[in-house]
Design a binder for these strands. Structure first.
Length: 171
DNA sequence: TCAGTGATTAGG
DNA sequence: CTAATCACTGAG
């Protein structure tokens, strides 16, 4: 797996609809249990866009859980769903504009719940800063790939308009 | 198709 | 305190 250059703050502080389509193909770098670094190409993500998006957890306002989404981009938003699976999200945008990208899959570990379980990502990563962290970050390999898009998955509770936004991006 | 599983949230 | 909800997965 090619290594690359760590993404800086500027990459994350843009609108989620600019950041999300650029994530597939980037490397997720994480320090594994044996202290070595693992590199996994991101294959699938979804954008969740601010207080207007019915499918976004920040839609109902600021809570203890969603607090980190109100920070500037580059932090991790981690939460447990269905009592079993940790979800990995990357906060984007400027301060007080709550947005995040759900990482739905990386190479060899497709599925948002499976990738966190396989890589050992849990609540302890909540709020981690991808710009400075020594155990998790994203890097640009300089390679680019064609990215497809389609509707987001698992948001039956949202209205038709929000369910139909093509904000899932994948290789 | 459907149960497992427990944090989070709103409401009394 | 209670009860509903849930950005998923794997089994049948």
């Amino acid at each position: 797996m090619n290594s690359g250059k760590r993404l800086s703050r500027d990459f994350y502080t843009r609108d989620v609809l600019d950041v999300a389509p650029e994530l597939p193909g980037k490397n997720l770098v994480i320090r594994l249990q044996n202290e070595s670094l693992g590199r996994f190409r991101v294959t699938e993500v979804e954008a969740y866009r601010g207080s207007e998006d019915e499918a976004c957890h920040a839609f109902k306002g600021r809570t203890a859980r969603t607090e980190i989404m109100f920070h500037e981009g580059g932090r991790l938003y981690i939460y447990l769903v269905y009592g079993m699976y940790w979800m990995l999200n990357i906060v984007t945008g400027e301060k007080n504009n709550p947005q995040a990208v759900l990482v739905r899959g990386v190479e060899n570990y497709p599925g948002p719940g499976k990738l966190t379980k396989s890589l050992g990502i849990d609540k302890s990563y909540y709020g981690e800063d991808l710009v400075f962290s020594e155990r998790i970050w994203l890097e640009d390999t300089g390679l680019s790939y064609p990215v497809k898009c389609g509707p987001r998955i698992g948001i039956e509770y949202a209205g038709e308009y929000w369910k139909s936004r093509p904000w899932r991006y994948f290789l």
